[in-house]
Amino acid sequence: MKKTLLPILFLFMVNQSYSQRIAYIVTTQNDTISNLTLKNSFVFKNSLLMNLQEKLIVENQEGVQKTYLPSDLKSFMLYYDGEKIQYESIDNKVFGILMYTDKIKLVKINTRNYFIYAFTRPNNGKTSYMEGKGLSRRITLNVITREMGDCPSTIKKVEDDILKVHYEEGVIELVKDYEANCLK
């Protein structure tokens, strides 16, 4: 009895220790709501972050639960183990983790096999999706050319290996270069 009770108790304690606070949510009507508790329950961080891409379940101070879909919110931010994580709604279909913002907002969508990096151009509203595959989450030149074909200078830097699109830092540098050289 003692051997089965201990793992169950440990799992319950771990699950409870990951009860996180939502700093705020921004609805599609630009209303900001705060003082919410996250009710999506997963033991592991990656499972939680992937689940939050589909829907957000929160509870207010009165104990009322509400589920938000990407079509209901513009963004939300939560604290996870002291880290601020901000999600943005992408085309009202999925929430993505905000990686970079200036003129362009770059977000990351995590799938089981690869990342999708999405950014929306401020001048025409077109959203581009670039798949980062492999261990380094590398985006291929073909994908960059497809999504950034309107920016030959950025593509040339990738071809000449001046811009290395390895890992998340490389993706951010790619978007920064595109933003600096091709957005007016």
Rank of each mutant, 00 (worst) to 15 (best):
T4G: 11
T4C: 07
I8G: 06
F10E: 04
L11T: 15
L11Q: 09
M13N: 07
V14S: 11
V14K: 14
S17V: 05
S17E: 05
Y18I: 06
Y18D: 06
Q20D: 11
R21S: 12
I22F: 13
Y24T: 08
Y24A: 09
T27E: 09
T27L: 11
D31R: 15
D31K: 15
K39P: 04
S41G: 08
F42C: 08
V43E: 11
N46F: 05
S47P: 00
L49I: 10
M50S: 13
N51P: 03
N51T: 10
L52V: 07
Q53V: 06
K55P: 03
L56P: 08
E59I: 14
E59T: 15
E59P: 11
E59M: 15
N60E: 09
E62Q: 14
V64D: 09
K66H: 15
T67A: 12
T67W: 03
T67K: 14
P70C: 10
L73E: 02
K74F: 04
S75G: 06
D81Y: 11
E83A: 14
Y87P: 14
I90H: 01
D91H: 10
D91T: 10
N92W: 02
V94F: 11
V94K: 14
G96W: 00
G96L: 06
T101L: 05
D102L: 07
K103D: 06
K108A: 13
I109W: 07
I109F: 15
T111V: 05
R112G: 05
R112I: 13
I116W: 05
A118S: 15
T120H: 07
N123D: 14
N124F: 05
G125V: 06
K126F: 02
K126P: 00
K126T: 03
M130H: 00
G134L: 02
G134V: 04
L135W: 10
L135A: 09
S136N: 12
R137H: 14
I139Q: 02
L141R: 02
N142I: 03
R146D: 07
R146L: 10
M148Q: 01
C151L: 06
P152G: 08
S153F: 11
S153A: 14
T154R: 01
I155H: 00
K156I: 09
E159S: 08
D161M: 03
I162E: 13
L163R: 09
K164C: 02
H166M: 00
H166W: 00
Y167V: 01
E168Q: 06
E169P: 00
G170W: 02
I172K: 02
E173S: 13
L174C: 03
L174I: 11
V175H: 00
D177N: 12
D177A: 09
D177Y: 12
Y178D: 01
N181M: 10
C182L: 02
K184S: 10
